[in-house]
């Protein structure tokens, strides 16, 4: 079973990001980067599906600068077989649609049975790529997966999704796009032998041009600004004063 997993290089989710003074983005100098945690879950699921199937190939792909090779290596150290880097030096110059169309071109090259991705990334939080990719490919999609079971004939998969009121189980024909939610699995650590082997694994590089993808975003970021700081509260002396303030100042009581 051949599985393609798309991974994204994102700022360390535990650090406090700062905006650039001119509002064109966030400051990335001196920030540590990691693999989108949802994508790590997708890699883990792909490895487990491959192990269960008793063979196949797991390919990790990313779109980003040469530095994103580190994030591909992380996937390779976990056990993925090879990597694909589509070189892009300006993250602000592409949108979810460009990413989806680029992944479509990668899928056309690799012909995987399944594409696994994290449901969203903690930087843009847009939650669009898996859905757009499925649409561009004309493939079924199952998003927010908390459980994936591939049928023995590998022609379909049963995907459990966490909905507001309970669980929903979908059956999708393969090939399909599945996006991973938080509780899908607990990813393994990259082991020492895994990290050593990762160094020798192949990473192929492509450009948008070589894949025939037009780098024409439909959405561009106009500006970034921080939410207004919360003002300090006030101490009131009595219930009467509180009610009075709620009525006349905050105007939340009639």
């Amino acid at each position: 079973m051949k599985i393609l997993v798309a991974v994204k290089r994102v700022p360390d989710t535990t650090v406090k990001l700062k905006l650039k003074p001119d509002g064109t983005g966030v400051v990335t100098d001196g920030v540590n980067f990691e693999v989108n945690p949802f994508d790590v879950i997708a890699v883990e699921e792909a490895l487990r599906l491959k192990e269960k199937a008793g063979g196949g190939e797991v390919i990790v792909a990313t779109i980003g600068s040469k530095d994103a090779t580190q994030q591909l290596r992380h996937g390779l150290a976990m056990g993925a077989d090879r990597g694909i880097l589509v070189v892009n030096d300006d993250d602000n110059a592409i949108d979810a649609d460009v990413v989806a169309r680029t992944l479509k071109a990668v899928v056309a090259k690799e012909q995987p049975t399944l594409v696994l991705v994290g449901k969203q990334s903690p930087d843009g939080e847009s939650n669009q790529v898996p859905q757009m990719l499925a649409e561009h490919l004309g493939w079924p999609q199952a998003t927010f997966a908390s459980k994936v079971v591939v049928a023995a004939d590998k022609a379909s998969a049963e995907v459990t999704r966490e909905a507001d009121g309970g669980l929903e189980t979908l059956s999708v024909r393969l090939p399909a796009v599945i996006s991973a939610d938080l509780r899908l699995n607990e990813p393994r650590y990259a082991s020492l032998p895994g990290i050593m082997k990762a160094k020798a694994k192949k990473i192929d590089e492509f450009t948008f041009e070589s894949l025939g993808v037009a780098k024409a975003p439909k959405v561009t970021a106009v500006g970034f600004f921080a939410p207004p700081e919360r003002k300090a509260g006030a101490v009131v002396a009595s219930v009467e004063e509180l009610v009075n303030k709620l009525k006349n100042e905050a105007k939340v009581l009639g």
Partner: peptide, 10 residues
């Protein structure tokens, strides 16, 4: 090395 840093992170 890059490998060391990966080991360290893990």
């Amino acid at each position: 090395s890059e490998q060391h840093l990966m080991v360290r992170q893990a």
